[in-house]
């Protein structure tokens, strides 16, 4: 298992797209911090970028990588390796390589310019987002056999989480305007890891203190000791659940 992880991770880190992703993140975040005098503002811009870019790269790259190595997976499956550990080592290889790319590209500038609790939350949530979307892509690629279809579905999934879901939220919130919405809002935020990460980051960036009753509800649910425990628990669930389902499927899959 170790060998497979090592092989996958190094294979990915040599990949041009991942290197480009890392270099782009690094230049962009350095640029943001250098241009803007107030690090908090750069963090806000960086947050917006991360929320779009990290899921996109993680999900698309992992899906394509797994489809491309389908023959390699078949080969390895013929070896005396448990299917579970084969699949998990692919996950660990992908997740660690992309996390490393994120950490070098975005984490180092953040630590250089804004090494406070906000910056650290930003790095942790960015890392969590990388892993979540690798896990989601594993789920997609194990269920869909056709490569083109699989890539299309992952693209749609990314679009759903970054854009469509928020549109649906807006629609639902206006349909149910007459009802108490507190619990619904919390429920909806938990349904989308990108929204949840955004809310956690904004709560820590203190701009939220300005925003009245709804922010108080968010604070109650997602900040503070119990809140952080809850929100990070949900995020970890988002990492584990798709992976667990994909492992179960892969175990019985006819390759």
């Amino acid at each position: 298992m170790k060998k497979v992880v090592k092989y996958v991770a190094f294979d990915i880190l040599r990949n041009k797209i991942v290197i480009a992703y890392m270099v782009f993140l690094f230049l962009f975040s350095m640029g943001l911090f250098i241009i803007e005098e107030v690090p908090e503002k750069s963090l806000l811009s960086l947050l917006t970028l991360n929320l779009i870019l990290i899921p996109l790269i993680s999900i698309m790259f992992s899906t394509i990588y797994i489809y491309n190595s389908s023959e390699f997976i078949e080969l390895l499956a013929a070896q005396p390796i448990q299917r579970k550990s084969l699949w998990l080592s692919f996950f660990i290889g992908l997740a660690s390589a992309l996390s490393l790319a994120f950490f070098i590209g975005c984490g180092i500038p953040v630590l250089l310019f804004s090494a406070n609790s906000v910056g650290i939350i930003m790095i942790i949530t960015g890392w969590i987002l990388s892993v979540i979307f690798v896990s989601v892509s594993m789920f997609i690629s194990v269920y869909i056999k056709d490569k083109t279809k699989g890539i299309g579905v992952s693209l749609l999934t990314w679009l759903y989480f970054t854009l469509l879901f928020d549109g649906v939220v807006l629609f639902v919130l206006f349909q149910l305007l007459e009802y108490p919405l507190e619990k619904l809002i919390i429920g909806l935020s938990v349904m989308n890891p990108i929204d949840l990460v955004r809310i956690i980051s904004l709560l820590n960036m203190d701009v939220s203190a300005l925003m009245g009753a709804t922010s108080a509800i968010f604070k109650q649910s997602f900040a503070g000791n119990m809140g952080s425990l809850f929100s990070f628990g949900v995020l970890i669930l988002w990492m584990i659940l798709p992976l667990y389902l994909s492992v179960r499927k892969f175990d019985k899959k006819d390759l």
Partner: peptide, 15 residues
């Protein structure tokens, strides 16, 4: 009109 939409604050959709 709907304070609950704070949930979408600074989201890509809103931008």
């Amino acid at each position: 009109r709907n304070p609950g939409t704070l949930m979408l604050f600074r989201s890509f959709f809103v931008k």
